[in-house]
Simulated scan of single mutants.
Amino acid sequence: MPFAEIGTSIIAAPMAGGTSTPGFVTAVHRAGALGFLAAGYKSAEAVSAEIRACREAGIRFGVNVFVPDPAQLSPSPDAVAALEEYRSSLGQDAARYGVSVPPLVLDDDDAWQEKIDLLLQDPVELVSFAFGLPDSAVVRALRKAGSTVLATVTSRAEAELAADCGFDALVVQHSSAGAHSGAFLPAAQQGATPPSTADLVREVGAAVGLPLVAAGAVSDAGTVRAVTGAGAVAAQVGTALLRTDESGARQLHKDALGDDRFSETTPTRAFTGRYARALVNDFVRDHLDAPQGYPAIHHLTAPIRAAAAAAGDPERLNLWAGKGWRSARTGPVAGAIGALLE
Rank of each mutant, 00 (worst) to 15 (best):
P195F: 07
F61S: 07
I6Y: 00
I297H: 01
L210Y: 03
N64T: 14
A240W: 02
R202C: 09
V28A: 05
V124E: 13
I59S: 09
A12K: 08
L106E: 11
G222H: 02
A71S: 14
P295G: 09
V99C: 06
E45W: 02
P2I: 12
P22Y: 00
I10S: 08
L106C: 04
A226W: 04
A270G: 06
A79E: 07
G216E: 07
A235P: 06
H287F: 08
G35V: 09
S176T: 15
E264M: 03
P194F: 01
T239A: 06
A179S: 13
H287R: 08
G229T: 14
F271H: 13
L200C: 10
A290C: 01
A240D: 06
G231M: 13
G58H: 10
A232W: 09
I51G: 03
G166R: 05
L279D: 12
E85A: 12
S9C: 00
Y275L: 13
A16K: 05
L212E: 11
V124W: 08
E85M: 00
E85C: 04
G17L: 12
L83Q: 04
C165A: 15
L133K: 04
G273I: 05
A4W: 00
K144A: 12
A249G: 13
A206Y: 01
D282N: 12
A151L: 00
A206M: 02
G40W: 01
V237Q: 08
G312K: 06
F271S: 12
A157Q: 10
Y97T: 15
D110Q: 10
A328K: 02
T193K: 03
A151I: 09
G91M: 04
Q121C: 13
P332W: 06
G335C: 05
R329S: 10
R305D: 12
F271V: 11
G331S: 15
F61C: 06
A306G: 14
M15P: 08
A215Q: 07
